[in-house]
Amino acid sequence: MINMSNSKFTTNELMAVTASRLLKDGQNIVVGLGLPQVATLLAKSTHAPHLNIIFEIGVVNPESVDTGVGIADPRLWYRSDYFTSFIGSLGHILQRGLVDVGFLGGLQIDKFGNINSTGVHEKDYFRHINGSGGAADIASYSKNIFAIAKHQKRKIVDMVDFITTVGYLNGGATRENSGLPKCKSIRIITNLCVMNFNNQLREMQIESVHPGVTKDQIIENTGFDIKFAGDLKETDLPDDNEIYLLRNVIDPKKLYI
């Protein structure tokens, strides 16, 4: 982790703010709990008041006042616009092609943006941890994919142990060739940097480095030989309003930030 003890914000707050700013007003977002939800709510309370937030369980645009333990927690469903089924959320909205951003987490992400949320190889067996839920569906049909992850050698890897959700598969046009719809962009936001895949090979590259983070730190904490974009930037700092909203309105119990 980077040392931000002297600065006015934490790494998680910076990640939430960075992700939030990548969302555009009016977009339809499918999101899971945790930092992705925090980032989405922050966007909705700042520059993107017309976001539609869709949860796979069949809940649209809730306005929770108590933090839930998962998407099956009725705390999350408070003041929703719409209740439906998987078919209603992941079928009629997502597969129909109406989702701009699918916002995921996972155990591992690889250099072509594939995400593993199923399990990991241990010495002599495959340790099963969770599974897809709606993640495979979301990555198949969202026009853009965002993910938030911890930047560690065992998490940002050359190849995931299990492809639960497809990013750019093996790079180039292999995603489309597998029969999946095109994915316009993938963004990975970690505690060290923001990464995209905006090159011919569709291979992970560093788009911006968080303030106070060195290139060596990123190289050391990545499981393969990571490339830096030609127009490498420094990640913009959060502003006071964003930090205020995160701490006092969006996650006052500090469950995620």
């Binding site: 078919i87 897809s132 839920g133 709606g134 495979a136 569906d137 198949s140 639960t164 995603r175």
Partner: peptide
């Protein structure tokens, strides 16, 4: 499976049709 793909099996069953086509799961280890 994924949540949606398995639900499609039930949707097809509930509609009395033999299958539902989808692109989800393509390319995955699932």
């Amino acid at each position: 499976f994924s949540g949606l793909s398995l639900t499609y099996r039930f949707l097809a069953g509930s509609l009395g049709v033999p299958y539902i086509p989808t692109k989800t799961l393509l390319g995955t280890d699932i």
